[in-house]
Nucleic acid binder design. Structure first.
Lengths: 185, 185
DNA sequence: AATTTTATTGTACACTTGTTCATTAAATAT
DNA sequence: ATATTTAATGAACAAGTGTACAATAAAATT
């Protein structure tokens, strides 16, 4: 069954209002009241759909994660000449993805945001990496794949964190080259 | 100049109250009001010292980070027979540290907590690693040390995250062995 | 021991939060 | 087109938030 038109409208209004507010102030400083005023939606209606402003943001989050998974589908496009035996070219797409949604990732990596967003991102990268790890690295080695992929996924995210910290001054391309160099050390 | 005795008393009462409350409920669900009631401190006094409950927690955080730095001082004690050329034995102390303060790290790694705590932890691990990285790995190699240490620090924290996720079922010793194995792949 | 300094208290205020419920109105189904 | 379903509204509630300020009391200074 399809969603009620009214539900669609309110959710749309709320998402738009949130996006506008996020250009001015940080996520955690946006109150339910001001959000509803801007969206012209009753506060009670907001609470009927979301428990807090963060839940609304998480809905947007999922569409971004969809793009991350998509870019994983066409991996060998940009990095074919950078590969060493240890580098997964799909992995390396993540920097282009982050560059594409820079505004979004400035929020995800901001200090005041709940850790759950980082985990959502971590989960996705980990599961993207997990397949390759078990395929290319661990032939017959008895080791917890979750641990290995957690290690590698978070290492990449460590670069992303440092990248964010340096205000994304490097290009995604440079980040790719950096990763390859680190892996070859 | 030393701190006023009254200030010391109120901070002490607040910290104790917070620790008691954290045994029952999650950090973000603790209100300033209930905290002050338990601590028998005026709400206005709380706001004179901290802006929010989180700030109080962060003060406790610093004492834990102090222990992390301390355990870094006596590194070769527990892991001397686990070393490969790539493993920094000091690095590997982190799992024992986390095990020691498990209750605390269950909070730091919980979803609802602000990302800033993770960053505080990340900062410490990164700076601990930074020295060794520049010393042992990068002899004459021109590469951003912040990036390399961010990569390695967060990789370790990735294991910690996965460890937390698996409810710390492994011992710190097992985590050490795991790390060594991953590094040798 | 008396005086000065300053942290804490109690009270008050406007505001946000999260929830409830009867009323209204929009969308879907007949 | 009409009836039915159900989402959105508005109002009201108790509780928490963040801030301000005069009164008090505890600590530091002399």
């Amino acid at each position: 069954m399809k969603t009620d038109l009214r539900v669609f409208k309110t959710k749309d209004a709320l998402r738009n209002a949130l996006m506008h507010l996020l250009e001015q102030k940080s996520l955690n400083s946006i109150s339910v009241t001001e959000l509803c005023q801007l969206a012209k939606v009753n506060r009670g209606t907001f609470y009927a759909h979301y428990g807090q402003v963060e839940n609304l943001f998480e809905e947007y989050f999922k569409t971004i994660m969809k793009d991350l998974a998509d870019s994983y589908q066409e991996p060998y496009k940009y990095v074919k000449n950078l590969l060493s035996k240890d580098v997964n070219p799909a992995t390396i797409r993540i920097f282009h993805h982050i560059e594409k949604y820079e505004t979004f990732y400035r929020i995800v990596f901001s200090r005041t945001v709940p850790l759950s967003y980082y985990y959502l991102l971590f989960d996705h990268v980990q599961s993207l990496i997990r397949d390759d790890v078990s395929e290319h690295y661990l032939n017959g080695i008895d080791i917890d794949i979750s641990m290995v992929s957690a290690y590698q996924a978070n290492a990449i995210l460590g670069l992303a964190i440092e990248w964010h910290r340096q205000d994304f001054k490097q290009s995604a391309e440079e980040m790719n080259r950096l990763l390859v160099r680190i892996l070859s050390i």
